[in-house]
Design a protein around this nucleic acid. Sequence first.
DNA 1: AAAACGGGGCC
DNA 2: GGCCCAGTTTT
Length: 373
Amino acid sequence: MVPSMKNTPVSKKRAPVASFPKSLLAWFATAARPMPWRETRDPYRIWLSEVMLQQTQVATVIPYYERFLTKFPTVEKLAAAHQDDVLKLWAGLGYYSRARNLHRGAQMIVERFGGKMPRSPDTIREIPGIGDYTAGAILSIAFDLPEALVDGNVARVLSRLKMLEGDWRTGEGKRTVWDVARVAVAEVHAARLNPGDYNQALMELGSTVCTPRSPSCSQCPVAAFCAATKNDVQDDYPKLKAKSVSPEWKLRAWIVRDKNKILFAQRGQDGLFGGMWELPTERLEPKTSSSPKPIARVTHVLSHRVLHVEAIEINQPDWRKRFPKNADLTCWSGDYTQFKWLNMDDAQSGSIALPAVQAKILALCAEKTPLFD
DNA sequence: AAAACGGGGCC
DNA sequence: GGCCCAGTTTT
């Protein structure tokens, strides 16, 4: 026994050893960035934020989040909305199945759960668009339940902390990182700390300190617990497998003119841009020649595909010759469900839900042909 | 287990 | 130009 301990009464507790969760939470209390969804405990708002944040950065989400809640402040309002109006507010955010699922989910919550978000992991997982991550996020953040969560940030932090070897996105590596996360959140709960704050702190650390490239280990509040830092191999984690290359598609968007009106079409629910509106667009064979000459071209990169889009103007009679009925034009995944004539201003001012690539090509056309107004 | 699913920010 | 982002669903 060390001399200084000699007179310490047995009953008196030792000063608590700084634990990983305590160090992390102490840091989070001072370093948490303000975010709109951190001002509320409303499960609906937490849910909305988590869905918008799927594969999407915080800064991108904030304006969409505010606009969405102005229009749909409660789950009941969202459940009662038309899908078109939901998609309009999602236009430009991407991954549009998120919006369709959110809308269906709101209806499920109202009709089946009496307007209240379920508090059980198994039940909440039945809501469309709520997977393992989002279930853990809502349950821990809105309800203080000790549920784990793993997103890209958490996976990176835990991978470095424990030098996890597998790719956390698939197979064994995924199971491992989730196991680590669950064990940790159980310890957090046992220590009477808040699981929601802990989960958010882990994500905050990942996005501001334990970043993908050049992490700030010297400023990390939990560097003392980190195996990768100890071995100076933080840049080697997480270990990820390479992604496959994206195929390139050539698309032709028709600008069908009738005086100052342009023809728009709505895609079916399934597949890319499901439920969204666009200029009638065909997929072409890679070597197809363009005639007449396109008035605009854009290249647009998706996560899994590169789109080369050309816009070709055509008058009503020529359009009818090519496609006797509008329905004769089919987009690459199923048929269009609806057509509508709009002037350029209406189309560009949010009266229909346009994906970013379509908004981009429309803006180029408006710029190049002064006839539109 | 792998592929489909958007778009933008950052190096 | 490639990587990554508070992932989920379908195949």
